[in-house]
Amino acid sequence: MVQQIRPYGDSWGDGQVQLSFTLPLPAGPKAREAANRLVAQMGLENVQIVHEKDLHGFTFFIIYGRCRHSVDLNQLPEVEADEQPMGFEEINAFIQERIGRRIVVVGACTGTDAHTVGLDAIMNMKGYQGEYGLERYPWFETYNLGSQIPNEALLQKAVEVQADAVLVSQVVTQRDIHIKNLTELVELAEAEGLRPRLILVVGGPRIDRRLAAELGFDAGFGVGTTARDVAGFLAKEVARRLERGE
C-alpha cells in the first residue's frame, strides 16, 4: 500500500509549508518576483507572499505554499525506533549490575569553542530541564575540562584517568569549524591507538546521529538532549562492549 506523506496544514495532503528568508534586494516587485521563483524552484506551488519587509537594501519574506513533493513511507529505509529511555535510578542500577564499576567520562568543548552551555547541561551537577547532570550520577566518574581544550589535551586526560568515554561539545559551527575539530579528534585517537577503547560522543545544536557517524563518532546528540539520554547510551554501550569482550 502506498502511503504518501505531505505536510499537514488543516487537511490531509494539503502540503502547507511556511518559510521565511531574506533576499539581498530592496523591497519591490523585483524582489517579490525573485522570491516567487525561488520558492517555485523549491517545489512549492500556490505561493503566497503573506509578508514582506524592507530592511534597507534587503527584503524579508514570510511565505506560504503547497509542497508538490511527497514521501512514500514504504520507500523509507529502516529507521531505528526511539528506545524507551531509562531513568536516573534505572541507569545507576544498570551500571552497578551489568558493569560493576563506575563509568569514567571526560568532557570538553574542543578547539576554539568557548561555549560550555551544552557541555554543562549534560555534565554539571545541576543538569538541564530538570534532569540531573552526569556529575550527580553515583555510577559515573566525570571530568569536565571546560572550554577551548585542544584535542591532544582531551585525549591525554582520557588516558590519564582511563576513561571509557569522551564527550565533545561543539556549539560554534560557523564555516564548519566543528567538522574540522571533530575529524581531527577521531584521527588523533586513531593515530594513538586509542580509538577502539574509547567511546567517542559528540553533542551540539547542529549535531545529529548521522553526522556523528559520518565523522567516525559512536554517537551524536543534538538539541533537546538531557544527561539521561547520554548516561543511558553510555551505560548500554559500555555493557555491550564488556559482553563482547572488547
Binding site: 576554539t112 569553542d113 568557548a114 560554534v172 560557523q174 564555516r175 569549524i177
Partner: peptide
C-alpha cells in the same frame, strides 16, 4: 569577537575578513 580571541596574548593587526562565531 571571534571565539579564540580572548586567549590570544596579543591583539591582531589590520582589518580582518575571517573569524569563527
Amino acid at each position: 569577537r571571534t571565539t579564540a580571541q580572548s586567549l590570544l596574548d596579543y591583539v591582531p593587526y589590520g582589518t580582518t575578513t575571517e573569524g569563527f562565531g
